[in-house]
């Protein structure tokens, strides 16, 4: 803090520094957000007057099986986007507790690669891998497993988990890098103390490594859960929500309802629900993990 007693005008002029940024934020984020909330209580086709319907849109959403199952799909995707990469990352970090590896910078650069690319590019690459005559099926044929091969993204049973696996692929490098970097900052005395106590590899992992990575786990959870719940680009380019509605997610419904079916009020209410879901899950993650930290 710059610490002298400023004149009043000089003091208020400090707010000019934040003004441009806040103008952008208010006009293009806070105002649209409030408008979405208001529209969510109305019936509106995009033209004409908005008709106030109270909570009707929300009730209809919760009664609509297609929409509730799209929320269920999102939770299944969280397993693939969040749970698997974090388990993989933690397992590997646990193995690498005391190994100093040379040339780690190159590994990091490669493992981080899926993070930087457009999900449209990623989706096109995987569409090819999963294609009827793509590498996955050719590989299965090669090993004489022709019976298993199929159009993976066209299958009602397999499309959702196979889109989920793309998410695991996008995320596991990120969690690996994050957790390995975190493990190296845990004081080695803690590991020495565990060894003196006669702790095995498992006890060492659960008593030292896991608590030491709490901060990184929160970051990874917040980051991956948010992506799993949004996820529009990847679904749009790989399956478009199909076959049927087997890979539909809420953001896909928001897009379709608002811009193809002219159910703007209903789409807005779904947008509010998605936002609330993201906020609730993130708050839960932060609150539960932080509290354990204090005890």
């Amino acid at each position: 803090m710059i610490n002298h007693r400023p004149h009043k005008i000089e003091y208020y002029s400090n707010y000019l520094y934040i003004l441009p940024a806040f103008l952008f934020y208010i006009i293009f984020v806070l105002y649209p957000l409030s408008d979405t909330i208001i529209t969510s209580f109305t019936e509106w086709s995009g033209i004409g007057e908005k008709k106030w319907v109270g909570l009707e849109n929300y009730k209809k959403n919760l009664a609509d099986k297609k929409i509730t199952s799209s929320i269920k799909h999102s939770f299944i995707l969280i397993i693939f986007y969040s749970f698997f990469p974090i388990i993989i990352g933690l397992g590997i970090a646990g193995i690498m507790v005391r190994v100093k590896v040379r040339g780690i910078a190159i590994y990091r650069a490669i493992l981080f690669l899926p993070q930087i690319l457009s999900m449209i590019v990623v989706g096109i690459a995987w569409r090819w891998i999963y294609a009827p005559k793509g590498p996955l099926n050719s590989g299965l044929d090669f090993f004489g497993l022709d019976d298993i091969s199929r159009a993976w993204l066209g299958s009602f049973d397999y499309a959702l988990p196979f889109v989920g696996l793309i998410g695991t692929w996008v995320m596991f490098g990120f969690t690996m890098i994050l957790f390995i970097a975190g493990v190296q900052k845990i004081p080695s005395e803690l590991y020495d103390a565990a060894k003196v106590d006669g702790a095995g590899a498992f006890a060492e992992f659960f008593n030292v490594t896991l608590p030491g990575l709490k901060g990184e786990i929160i970051v990874a959870l917040v980051f991956t859960v948010t992506l799993a719940l949004r996820n529009f680009d990847l679904i749009y380019i790989t399956t478009g929500g199909g076959p049927g509605t087997s890979t539909m997610i809420p953001s896909m419904f928001i897009y379709k309802k608002a811009f193809q079916m002219n159910q703007v009020g209903s789409a807005s209410s779904l947008g509010v629900m998605l936002t609330l879901l993201i906020f609730t899950l993130i708050s839960l993650i932060i609150i539960t993990l932080r509290e354990k930290n204090e005890t």
């Binding site: 979405t36 809420p250 807005s268």
Partner: peptide, 11 residues
């Protein structure tokens, strides 16, 4: 953490 999905319609 705000998703674009909550802003795009009014935008």
């Amino acid at each position: 953490v705000l998703p674009y999905e909550s802003l795009i319609i009014p935008l």
